[in-house]
Amino acid sequence: MSDPHLPSDTEILFSRILHAPRELVWEAWTNPVHVAQWWGPRGFTTTTKRHEFRVGGYWEHTMQGPDGTNYPNKSKFLEIVPQERITYLLGGGSDLEGDERRGTTFRATWTFEAVASDRTRLTGRMVFPSKEARDRVVRDFGAVEGGKQTLERAAEYTAGLQTKPFVISREFAAPRDLVWRVWTEPEHFSQWFGPKGFKIKLARFDLQPGGMTHYSMVMPEGKVLWGRAVYREIAAPAKLVWLNSFSDEAGGIAPHPLTKDPWPLQMLTTIVFTEQAGKTTVTIHWVPFDSTAAERATFEAGRGSMAMGWTGTLDQLTAYLSLNP
């Protein structure tokens, strides 16, 4: 007997526990306004043309890849069990059943399992007409990695729905390419990053998706702290996304070393770079990731200290850029 939790040779299965209640995950999946913010692999955008969320209704949307290629999708909802399950048939043409017989589409079932009051296992299972059809989608469209990235983006988006992000911006009298370089080249990054007065030493700098920057921070009084950034998205020269944490010397995640309050173990950090008239605005979004209610409360109470820390960091960046025209 086959294991229902493992995919067969005609299926693709991906699953992730989101640190969000089931009703919130359901809303993020079923509301096209929310879906547009996280659906698809990193770098993709989604535009919905029609969304009839009922059995027999259609969802038409276009996914655009980072290279500008458009991927039209048309789905027919076959089953909807509120907050539990959604099944649809997806294809590129108007005759979905005909597409399925030709092996150019699949049936997808998404399940929403509450594993705790604030944890939801979101699972997507795509069933193809044949192993060959499944293999073609994996080979030609990177469906396995795409599904993984989609669920990562869902986790990031639902984190932002539960906590108002901390946002800070600064305009720099420097072109975007230069500002991007000082964020992404280790010889520059170590000279200015971190709170004012801290000295940064890089133990590792691996600028690629999944790569990690690991660094020590020496406080003015000599105490040594460790931090790390694990990169999620790198879109030169416009956007950086990483998960920021306090760390130990070995590179593991560690709790905040300067407080007993439950500070979030991971912070989703998004840095956006925009340029106008030769000047660059850097906007930083910070939000707790995979957090508990207590961690989010500590985050909310700490906005003043966050503003102070990031202001000092950006002051140091301003001074550094003035020396590197």
Score class of each variant (00 low, 15 high):
residue 159 A to L: 02
residue 150 T to P: 05
residue 34 H to M: 08
residue 113 E to V: 10
residue 67 D to I: 11
residue 106 F to G: 08
residue 265 L to Q: 05
residue 45 T to R: 01
residue 199 K to G: 13
residue 54 R to P: 03
residue 243 L to Y: 12
residue 137 V to I: 15
residue 323 L to A: 13
residue 246 F to V: 03
residue 278 G to R: 04
residue 55 V to L: 00
residue 303 R to Y: 14
residue 167 V to A: 12
residue 273 F to V: 01
residue 289 F to E: 01
residue 29 W to H: 02
residue 240 L to V: 03
residue 71 Y to T: 14
residue 106 F to Y: 09
residue 221 E to Q: 14
residue 176 R to L: 13
residue 297 A to V: 03
residue 19 H to W: 05
residue 135 D to K: 09
residue 60 E to F: 07
residue 277 A to P: 05
residue 193 F to Q: 09
residue 52 E to L: 01
residue 310 W to Y: 12
residue 295 E to N: 03
residue 312 G to K: 11
residue 10 T to C: 15
residue 47 T to P: 02
residue 253 I to P: 05
residue 271 I to G: 07
residue 23 E to I: 04
residue 42 R to N: 15
residue 142 G to Q: 11
residue 48 T to E: 06
residue 116 A to D: 14
residue 44 F to D: 07
residue 192 W to E: 02
residue 32 P to E: 06
residue 135 D to N: 14
residue 217 M to K: 10
residue 27 E to D: 14
residue 26 W to E: 00
residue 302 G to S: 14
residue 61 H to G: 07
residue 213 T to D: 06
residue 210 G to Q: 14
residue 63 M to S: 04
residue 18 L to V: 07
residue 254 A to S: 15
residue 319 A to N: 13
residue 154 A to S: 10
residue 248 D to H: 10
residue 81 V to T: 03
residue 278 G to L: 08
residue 17 I to T: 14
residue 164 K to T: 15
residue 171 E to N: 15
residue 240 L to G: 05
residue 145 E to P: 05
residue 83 Q to P: 03
residue 34 H to L: 02
residue 19 H to N: 15
residue 143 A to K: 01
residue 113 E to S: 10
residue 213 T to E: 10
residue 11 E to I: 06
residue 170 R to N: 04
residue 6 L to A: 06
residue 8 S to M: 03
residue 187 E to I: 03
residue 253 I to G: 10
residue 145 E to T: 15
residue 137 V to T: 11
residue 51 H to W: 08
residue 138 V to Q: 12
residue 184 T to D: 13
residue 190 S to P: 13
residue 200 I to N: 11
residue 113 E to M: 09
residue 31 N to H: 12
residue 20 A to T: 07
residue 165 P to R: 05
residue 282 V to T: 05
residue 290 D to I: 01
residue 208 Q to F: 13
residue 202 L to E: 08
residue 82 P to L: 08
residue 255 P to Q: 07
residue 132 E to P: 11
residue 85 R to K: 03
residue 65 G to L: 13
residue 95 D to V: 00
residue 52 E to F: 08
residue 201 K to P: 09
residue 217 M to V: 12
residue 262 P to W: 07
residue 133 A to G: 05
residue 217 M to C: 04
residue 141 F to I: 09
residue 87 T to N: 09
residue 147 G to A: 00
residue 112 F to C: 01
residue 223 K to G: 12
residue 294 A to L: 07
residue 33 V to S: 14
residue 324 N to K: 14
residue 188 H to F: 12
residue 130 S to A: 11
residue 283 T to E: 11
residue 174 A to E: 06
residue 190 S to I: 13
residue 57 G to L: 08
